[in-house]
Design a protein around this nucleic acid. Structure first.
Lengths: 197, 197
DNA sequence: GTCTATATGTTGATAGAC
DNA sequence: GTCTATCAACATATAGAC
């Protein structure tokens, strides 16, 4: 397959941003064409349907998310990995207050809808759930699956409500609370306290 | 204002259901007209624009939600009121797994969008936040606002993720966890334990 | 591979008879 | 108040020249 331009990548990136900001149904192909600076008629050379673009966006998001999560695992310490993800989220709290979470938003919009896609809208959520389950499992928890559900759903809830109210301060406060929860987690296993550190 | 039919109510109810199930942008006036059994052209006698219907839906939802929350307060015990809301939610977990939360969904869809409405998409979330804040305040908590944010965002997160995965079992498990949290809340104030009860 | 022009269908909204 | 017919705008998608 010859690669003579980056139009396909530009289309996916534009669609990714637009679907994140205004949702799938609100976003038109004209929007995507304009934002990516690709003529409308040319879009169809790369994607046969609008759904196919959404499919490619999910594919791209899965890659990005996997990279992010891999990056969190550098320390090879599951607890620190979870905390790194939360800190990364915390750093983006300003953006989150403005536009919310792309994964949660798409899931919410398409959860009751069947669109003919190779990928599913909830794929990214599943990636997040499996990754965090792996971390809790590595920490020695038997109920890792339940904990990962709590972990992910609390993040998603904070972002949903925080974005709805555009309340960055509360997003930070709630994420801090989540961080405290994770930090307290295996201290009970170790059964000791660290003073003045 | 003469009341010769219940068409207006039927339109609002149909719009309420459709916006809940498939979102605002996906829902067309033809959908609403069909579901309410009102001819398309007649819709405009009751509502000038699509946004106006959404406005009426939010208005209706606020009334329903207020009724639900008032009902939870019958016991005049703030802790039991919070628990009653959670138990009511628990009872609807089957429906929630299928279609999610109408309030959270609309907020998520319209949070980054400005629609000329009398009511705002996040009104219902605010009603929930204020009500739960009042309960925590009545329980004697100074940080009642933070706690209400945690309370509501955890509920919303559970519903968002649970609906995305259509996982009723996890919705119930996570709500049970939330119930345990609320139940444990003022036991620390009382500083006592109840054995075998 | 690219892009203009346009077909084709759908949507929100209106006109006007009853 | 009600409802049919229909408009104008916009959406997805295609045709075909370059």
């Amino acid at each position: 397959m010859p690669r003579t331009s980056d139009k396909r990548e530009r289309l996916i990136e534009a669609a990714n941003n637009l679907i994140h900001r205004q949702g799938f149904h609100k976003t038109t192909l004209a929007d995507i064409a304009t934002e990516s600076d690709v003529p409308l008629g040319n879009v169809y050379y790369y994607f046969k349907t609008k759904e196919e673009i959404c499919d490619a966006v999910i594919e791209e998001r899965k890659k990005e998310l996997t990279t992010t999560l891999d990056d969190c695992c550098q320390s090879a310490n599951p607890k620190k990995a979870l905390l790194k993800l939360l800190n990364t989220t915390m750093e983006a709290s300003n953006e989150i207050a403005e536009t919310g979470c792309p994964h949660g938003r798409l899931c919410n919009e398409l959860s009751n809808e069947i669109i003919g896609l190779t990928n599913s809208a909830d794929d990214c959520l599943k990636v997040l759930l499996e990754w965090s389950r792996d971390q809790f499992k590595a920490m020695g928890y038997r109920n890792a699956k339940d904990m990962s559900f709590e972990f992910v759903s609390r993040i998603q809830g904070i972002i949903l409500v925080g974005n709805s109210l555009h309340d960055e301060k509360q997003i930070k406060a709630q994420l801090k609370s989540l961080i405290n929860w994770v930090e307290s987690l295996d201290s009970k296993n170790k059964e000791r306290r660290v003073a003045l550190n």
